[in-house]
């Protein structure tokens, strides 16, 4: 998968976009921690929890993609359609993040974490490893346009393993910034952050464009499977649509 590094980068830089939402949760993880707790560890475990959820959702997306492709084979190019759809969404998200397009649902989504954090608090302030892990786990479910866009991308792989990999890469990408934010340092100047935002945004746009391109290629040449092969999916190659 040539996009994996790009997805990782998209996650890494795109997480600047998520700071507004998941940032406060990460901060309260440190702020509400019992005295003497290791903040870095807690933040990392929190991140692992999030990645776990992303990967889990990636698995579901990949599986659903595979199931859909199988069900509709010869009828609709579902994998290609999904790829184009996901690509379009990614481009849109990228453009919104870059500030080229206005933010449509910003207000709508902005209010959500407040409601969620009331019961997330129990996990955020719990000692030991299970609290932060579960907090991360549930934070992963918080509605987020970027996550959904990458989930569609994962679905378009029409393969469970690759769906998981996609989301894993995205999740790992989000770790560094979230840990830094959670750790509470003023890590970047305002200008630096603005630059980062822009690079992240265009990164997402590029991922989207690649996805659209692959979808388009699949439409025109359905016999070729452009995806890489993992052990689980070997059978899929043999059963690839139209073969």
């Amino acid at each position: 998968m040539i996009e994996l590094p790009l997805i990782l980068l998209g996650g890494l830089l795109g997480s600047a976009h998520c700071l507004g939402m998941c940032g406060p949760l990460a901060i309260s993880l440190s702020a509400g921690a019992p005295p003497g707790a290791n903040h870095i560890n807690r933040q990392l475990i929190f991140g692992v929890g999030r990645i776990f959820t992303y990967t889990f959702c990636g698995a579901i997306a990949g599986f659903s993609g595979a199931w859909l492709t199988k069900r509709s084979s010869g009828f609709v190019q579902s994998q290609a359609t999904l790829a184009i759809f996901a690509g379009t969404l990614l481009v849109l998200m990228g453009l919104v993040t870059a500030g080229v397009l206005p933010r449509p649902f910003y207000r709508l989504l902005g209010g959500l974490p407040c409601g969620a954090s009331s019961w997330l608090k129990t996990y955020l302030s719990a000692p030991g490893w299970s609290g932060p892990l579960l907090a991360g786990l549930f934070t992963g479910f918080i509605p987020c346009g970027l996550v959904y866009a990458f989930l569609l991308k994962a679905g378009s792989t029409a393969n469970m393993g690759q769906g998981m990999l996609t989301m894993l890469a995205f999740g790992i990408g989000t770790i560094p910034l979230m840990v830094l934010v959670g750790y509470g340092g003023q890590f970047l100047s305002l200008v630096g952050r603005a630059h980062l935002f822009r690079i992240a945004a265009w990164c997402i746009v590029v991922t989207g464009v690649i996805s659209i391109a692959r979808g388009a290629v699949q439409f025109s040449a359905p016999n070729e499977t452009a995806t890489a092969i993992c052990p689980l999916c070997e059978p899929i190659k043999a059963e690839a649509p139209g073969s």
Binding site: A59, I60, F63, A66, K70, M164, L232, P235
Partner: peptide, 17 residues
């Protein structure tokens, strides 16, 4: 769920699995 889905995805193509 993940492991079950992995099993199901083999069921999607049972002959080969």
């Amino acid at each position: 769920m993940v492991f079950t889905m992995a099993l199901w995805s083999q069921d999607i193509y049972p002959a080969d699995s």
